[in-house]
Design a protein around this nucleic acid. Structure first.
Length: 958
RNA sequence: GGGCGCAUAGCUCAGCUGGCUAGAGCGCUUCGUUUACACCGAAGAUGUCCUGGGUUCGAAUCCUAGUGCGCCCACCA
């Protein structure tokens, strides 16, 4: 069969068509795979990309790694599911749309109103979503599109509501007033990890509240001091000890303050004056002190970023204005002692860079410290809970404790493992998670409120509803606020739904199970359907940057909802950086569009550039040159295949999905040449080692191994040999090697391998072929394909390389044919038998003379005996102008062209090198401790090495 | 302030549990119109493995101190 294929592989010509065929085949869906009933499942849920923007190379890296794992396991016979989806990214998306709206129409979201605005968002989402999905397909991702999910679609909405209600009933979700990070521009709270920091110059004011107050205080924010209710000092501070516990009333710039002197170990004695004005309402730390000391909380700044009422002339002023006024006032009264410039860490909003105001606000929280009881209404007796490796009993533990235990117990593993420590550290310091956001786009909180006059209130019981009453202490003493939590709006008058929506991580935290049919697939503590078949998942593969943001939440939520870990392994990849080492991100706009890369170099090359040279947890620098290099590799594979397929000896292997390696091609050992044995042995090793690498997440190493074999062993040597070495088994061997090589490559570069597979005449997809297995699970001793064949061919290779090298070094013209005389040592027979290899492999040798072994001559008591022993005779027998090469204990003399001077220099260099090595080795061996303490094997090796080198040196000196 | 990571060829990086003369890709030099491939082939050059100390018969690898870069966390008023 002779196939005419284009010389260069053109990815853009085939890729889209191949993807369509795959998708149409239905094999991305595990339900369509032809598998035994008890086939183990292998699941990865795709971390859903934010629909704020199209994908960048970071996403491509994620897709490449996951598709590699997925395709590998699919070929290994797992029930393999890779489930796609997208994330609505609540606040981020809303911001993008708001900015767009302002730019294009000059309107704010308030101008449009909630409903109209949400329509706009959904319009935007539709567009980016379709771009994302197209990009994902371009990468070759073998995702099961039939199970596609969106964090904001109907099933997920149901799941989120159910989760909220369950957690509320369990007392894990509560509403409370706490200091939150408030962005006055976004008009919303931010989670702790949504806050960014910026170094800035700030003024530190040292002042006294009033003349008769004994403390001097330092602050960068004088305006918040209007709400101070205490002064804190370090309990060890001798200067202030006597004041602790006292209460002072002061007149601070016209406002009356009651200040209690408290002790707190967090106060640094050396900073400022060692005394700290406590502003409970506008500092996280101060809030905690206030709670600990029962201090009053006075709100100074409102949600609009302005000073509240009750502060006389300061009311209604902005923060900046108030600050200026207060400083002026202090200065006037001679209370300002110092003004200095300091470096300060300013918290800003990660979306709009507006400085954050810490404010007390009523928000919804997930408690991480609440001891958990049994899930509401469900029987919780699983007898084998403890024996199941995925289950974790959470009764009597807090979410925090459970999430830590899941990792410490080894149920969840991290790759690389150093992130385990980071996870646990973070977990141990975790505070309650604020889940309400004052934005419109997202899951609406399933809570309704109504306020009633006290006297009217009769305890109203709804069936199946969860009603709690909260007394609103301060402002409305006569009113009672009712709260209703449920899936459907409550009946009755006056209910208003909570305007807030949920933190986006609340819905993505449920991602492993909300995508698999929870809660419908989970009844009475039992899983069914997809949930039982695919949960927990095997690997969560994501960037280390969202380890805390996402991974930790998934663990907590899965433990809460299912009492089961969400995944067994967490593989964390690094960031993809540009060639200057800068992070690519949407917000910075320096992300390279993966589609451009794919158009230029092909998806396969793009994938390789993200897989090879990348190690878990480490960042990756990417440049066009690098991708071009892999384009060349893909092209090499294409051409190797083109050659093999067009070879008249080529046979299409019998098509059967479960064919194992070589099993259909029994080779007659007698018909195999040295090179055949060598390549078959190498291939067998390759299969074993590649599988081993992939099983241990060493993708880069596996890729390099494959490249090494494909390019250096198969293409550069075996194929070259096959051009002139004609034997019976050649066609079969070529077919087998190509066959298995394509399978091994397929998870890395699915497109080109699938295309070649088709060209080979296969009627089934390579994608669902069985991963190769080696005929010998254990390495065989010398008898079979490995062993002697391998070693022998390596020797011939060395001889050939040495001859080429000598020719190049001595500048022998390529056209010039020369004669080689080889003194074979122990290997004379072998070399003689492979003479044709040496002659044909571009050595320019037209005649090859092999002399007998020296010891044979010795034993024959020939007159030459003595000379032979010292190998002097070769120098006698060979013309003086011969070039001498020593390789692997073999002497080679090239006759025909010489440069005596160069040869002398070469020998001198080599001798010096050898002498150095011998001295080193002798030193080592004369060391008693080495001989006694080092393992025998190493000592023996060292001795042998020394012996060989000494012999070589001897030869050279002659 | 605490924690983590990195430092190896001109560049980007491998180097697992200490043990052949420390490797790969790209780049560089020389040569080559060989019927799979110039997105190619052949040959070659290049290292104080960041620095100092220690453990060991033996350290790029383990320990320790330091320097430089990067990242994460934290309530410096």
């Amino acid at each position: 069969m002779i196939k005419e294929l284009p010389k260069a592989y053109e990815p853009s010509k085939y890729e889209d068509g191949i993807y369509k065929k795959w998708e149409k085949s239905g094999f991305f869906n595990p339900d369509n795979l032809d598998l035994p009933k008890n086939a183990p499942s292998y699941t990865i849920i795709l971390p859903p990309p934010n629909i704020t923007d199209k994908l960048h190379l970071g996403h491509s890296s994620m897709l490449a790694i996951e598709d590699l794992l997925i395709r590998y396991h699919r070929m290994k016979g797992f029930r393999t599911l890779w489930l796609p989806g997208t994330d609505h990214a609540a606040i981020a998306t809303q911001n993008v749309v708001e900015k767009k709206l302002l730019k294009e129409e000059g309107k704010t979201r308030q101008d449009l109103g909630r409903e109209k605005f949400l329509e706009k968002v959904l319009e935007f989402v539709k567009i980016t979503q379709s771009v994302i999905l197209r990009q994902t397909r371009k990468m070759g991702a073998s995702l099961d599109w039939s199970r596609e999910a969106f964090t904001l679609d109907k099933p997920r909405e149901e799941a989120v509501k159910k989760m909220f209600i369950d957690m509320y009933e369990a007392g894990v979700i509560y509403r409370g007033e706490r200091i939150v990070n408030w962005c006055p521009r976004c008009h919303s709270t931010l989670a702790d990890d949504e806050v960014e920091y910026k170094d800035q110059q700030a003024k530190l004011y040292t002042f006294k509240y009033s003349k008769d107050f004994p403390f001097t205080i330092a602050t960068t924010r004088p305006e918040t001091k209007l709400g101070d209710t205490a002064v804190a000092v370090n309990p060890k501070d001798k200067r202030y000890k006597k004041y602790i516990g006292k209460v002072y009333e002061v007149d601070f710039v016209g406002i009356k303050l009651k200040l209690k002197i408290i002790a707190d170990r967090h106060v640094e004695m050396d900073f400022g004056t060692g005394a700290l004005g406590v502003t409970p309402a506008h500092s996280m730390a101060d809030w905690q002190m206030a709670e600990a000391n029962g201090l009053e909380i006075i709100k100074v700044i409102g949600e609009d970023g302005k000073i509240n009422n009750n502060f006389k002339k300061y009311s209604g002023k902005t923060v900046e204005e108030a600050r200026e006024m207060i400083v002026k006032e202090l200065r006037k009264n001679n209370l300002l002692e110092k003004e200095e410039e300091i470096e300060n860490n300013l918290s800003i909003c990660y979306r709009c860079n507006t400085p954050i105001e810490p404010l007390p606000s009523k928000q919804w929280f997930v408690s991480v410290d609440k001891k958990l009881k049994r899930l509401g209404g469900e029987t919780q007796k699983h007898k084998n809970t403890k024996t199941q490796k995925h289950k974790l009993d959470i009764e009597g533990k807090t979410l925090k404790e459970a999430a830590i235990e899941a990792v410490k117990s080894g149920k969840i593993k991290f790759i690389p493992d150093r992130f385990e420590k980071r996870y646990i550290d973070w977990m141990e310091n975790l505070h309650d998670w604020c889940i309400s956001r004052q934005i419109w786009f997202g899951h609406r909180i399933p809570v309704w409120h109504r306020t009633r006059k006290h006297e009217n209130t009769k305890t109203q019981k709804h069936e199946n509803t969860k009603t709690r009453k909260h007394k609103n202490t301060k402002t409305q003493k006569h009113e009672i606020e009712e709260i209703y939590v449920g899936i459907e709006p409550p009946k009755g008058e006056g209910w208003v739904q909570d305007p807030d929506s949920l933190d986006t991580w609340f819905s993505s935290g449920m991602w492993t199970f909300s995508t698999l049919g929870w809660p419908d697939n989970f009844k009475n503590g039992k899983k069914k359907g997809d949930l039982s078949r695919f949960h927990p998942t095997q690997v969560l593969e994501t960037g280390y940057d969202i380890l805390t943001l996402w991974v930790s939440r998934m663990i907590m939520m899965s433990l809460f909802a299912l009492r089961e870990i969400p995944f067994e392994n967490v593989y964390l990849h690094g960031m993809v950086l540009d060639e200057h080492g800068k992070k690519m991100s949407k917000s910075k706009g320096n992300g390279i569009d993966p589609v451009d890369m794919i158009d230029k170099f092909g998806a396969d090359a793009a994938r390789l550039s993200l897989l090879i040279g990348n190690t878990p947890g480490n960042d990756l620098r990417l440049s066009e040159e690098k991708i071009a290099g892999f384009r060349n590799l893909v092209n090499k594979i294409w051409n190797v295949s083109r050659y093999v397929i067009s070879d008249f000896r080529f046979q299409t292997p019998p098509s059967s999905a479960d064919r194992g390696w070589v099993s259909d091609f029994r080779f007659n050992q007698k018909n195999l040449t040295v090179s055949d044995k060598w390549i078959l042995g190498k291939m067998e090793n390759l299969i074993k080692e590649t599988g081993d690498d992939l099983d241990n997440y060493r993708f880069s190493q596996a890729g390099e191994r494959l490249r090494e074999f494909t390019w250096n062993d198969f293409a550069d040597w075996y194929l070259e040999v096959s051009k002139f070495e004609k034997n019976k088994e050649k066609g079969k061997i070529l077919s087998v090697i190509l066959n298995d090589l394509l399978k091994l490559w397929h998870p890395f570069i699915p497109f080109v391998t699938e295309k070649i597979w088709e060209e080979m005449g296969n009627d089934k997809f390579l994608m669902i072929e069985k991963w190769p297995v080696t005929p010998h699970p254990q390495p065989l001793p010398h008898s079979c394909c490995r062993g002697r064949g391998e070693i022998d061919f390596e020797l011939i290779k060395d001889v050939i390389t040495a001859i080429r090298n000598a020719r190049a070094e001595n500048k022998i013209e390529p056209a010039r044919k020369i004669k080689a005389v080889i003194y074979g040592g122990k290997s004379a027979d072998l070399i003689k038998s492979q003479e044709y290899l040496i002659k044909n492999m571009r050595t320019g040798i037209k005649e090859l003379e092999i002399k007998e072994k020296a010891d044979k001559i010795k034993n024959r008591r020939s007159p030459l005996r003595e000379a032979a022993a010292g190998q002097r005779m070769w120098h006698c027998l060979v013309p003086k102008d011969a070039i001498h090469i020593a390789v692997a204990g073999i002497e080679i003399y090239l006759i025909g062209a010489v440069d005596e001077e160069k040869e002398k220099i070469r020998i001198k260099k080599e001798r010096e090198n050898l002498e150095k090595l011998i001295i080193m080795a002798e030193k080592k061996l004369s060391n008693k401790e080495f001989v006694e303490k080092a393992p025998e094997k190493i000592v023996k090796q060292e001795k042998e090495k020394l012996k060989l080198r000494k012999e070589e040196l001897k030869k050279l000196t002659k």
